[in-house]
Simulated scan of single mutants.
Amino acid sequence: MSSPAAETYGPIFVGVVLNIVLYGIMITQTFLYFTVYKRDKIWMKLFVALLFFCDTLNCAFDIAFTYLPLVNDFGDLASLNYASWVFATDPAMTAIIALFVQMFFAWRVKVLTGSITAVCVIMFCSLCQWCGGIGTAIAVGMIPEFTHFQQFEVIVIVWLAFSAVADTMICISLVWHLRKHKTGFSQTDDVVNKIIRMTVQTGLITALCAIIDLVLFLATPAGLHLIFNLPLSKLYTNSLMSSLNSRAGWKYGNGLGVGTSASELGRSQIKGLQMQSEYGKRVSVMNSAGQEVYIDVESHEMIDSLDKGPSPSESSDVGTVKMFALPRKSSEKPSRASVGQAPSRPSVTF
């Protein structure tokens, strides 16, 4: 004979465990963000901190509504059939977190695509799911019995259905825009494909989880939907943080180095190489003629000669890129010592 708590608190326990595991991933993602992206705008950092605070609060509430009936009210079988006010905070917190994340992605859709229609649809669906989540929390407080949760299935449908529609719209809008604006160059298209894969993975995970949660809620009163409902908030925050933390891979994933042929270098790649190089750093590339080309980046100060001396507001740093090629025989490799003996070094100033 199964335990009286197995039917209700079995799925709740599994959902809380998954929620805590995803919270650990969120901690790592947040630490990496504040470590790597120190130059992000202050509003972005505050936004990430707000999401992390909401996630922490949600985890505390989840642990509390699991602890109260299983520990404090141990042996009281009646308490296993009723949801406490702490349990009612979960749909509200999930809807609030989803609203923040979906509004951020709606802003990203506006910046990338400029489509006001898509942004309005996403914002409308996001606001509807937020209202549905708050309404679900209120309904749980009015009807706390787990077996009677299906009496307010309409508000739950509004919450989860509009949440899935908003996530799907975000995914479709970004993927459609990125595929439409491919350049035809292999290196840039590889970066675009990475962004598309990341967008599809993060967008469809939350949409799919919301749909499964809704189907199980309508199909059975056993509480199996809570396995997918409780970790839903962490899926939203982790999808956003993975999108923010993957920006370094988009920018530097196809970096240039030894072995890259000159025929593969366009003007945009050379410009990106100049911007990414540090002062005093030597970068080498291989051209199609078998020559190793070294690029030296140096720093010089430019001062107005009409003045007696430089002032902080009138001086600026400019970079000088010096490029020189060394012939390479098929059986020999260029040495570092021969580089300094090059007779001429034509320079290009940018």
Rank of each mutant, 00 (worst) to 15 (best):
L57I: 12
Y67T: 10
T202V: 05
Q29T: 05
C54P: 00
T35M: 13
F100L: 14
L18Y: 08
S261M: 08
R282T: 12
K271T: 05
S84N: 08
M142R: 09
P312G: 11
Q269E: 12
R282N: 10
H181K: 06
I122V: 11
V109D: 08
Y279L: 04
E264F: 01
G253Q: 12
G255I: 06
T183Y: 06
G15E: 04
A83C: 01
M286T: 15
Q187E: 03
I25N: 07
P312S: 12
T117W: 13
F124C: 15
A64E: 07
Y82T: 10
A139G: 00
W43C: 08
S347L: 06
V16D: 06
D76R: 15
R328V: 12
A83K: 05
T56C: 05
R267W: 03
M44W: 02
D213Y: 00
I134F: 07
G259A: 07
I196M: 04
V321E: 03
F124A: 15
F31W: 14
K251N: 14
V101P: 02
S315K: 15
V283Q: 02
D62R: 00
T117V: 09
S331A: 07
G272R: 08
V121F: 15
Y294W: 09
P11R: 08
K333M: 14
E7Y: 01
F47E: 07
I195Q: 11
V119C: 12
Y9V: 01
L18M: 10
E278W: 03
V121C: 13
R328W: 01
Y294K: 05
K182F: 01
S263V: 07
P91E: 01
V119Y: 13
V154S: 09
A88G: 05
D90E: 13
V348G: 03
T30C: 14
A98H: 04
I157R: 13
D90G: 02
G272L: 03
L216S: 04
G253Y: 13
M103A: 06
I97Q: 04
D190L: 11
F124M: 15
K322C: 05
I12P: 01
H148L: 07
F61E: 03
A5H: 12
Y252A: 04
M93Y: 04
S246Q: 14
I116Y: 09
F324P: 01
V17F: 15
E145G: 05
V293P: 06
W250S: 11
G114R: 04
F34H: 15
L240H: 06
G135S: 05
T349E: 02
V71D: 09
K322I: 10
I295T: 05
D90R: 07
L226V: 10
Y33M: 07
K182L: 05
R336I: 13
L77N: 13
F104Q: 06
V158W: 09
I116R: 12
D90N: 07
L46C: 12
S115Y: 03
E314D: 14
Q150W: 01
G319Q: 07
V21L: 15
V158H: 03
L326D: 06
G280F: 03
W85F: 08
N19C: 14
V192I: 15
A88K: 03
V156F: 06
V175N: 09
G272C: 06
E314A: 13
Q201V: 05
A118C: 10
G257W: 03
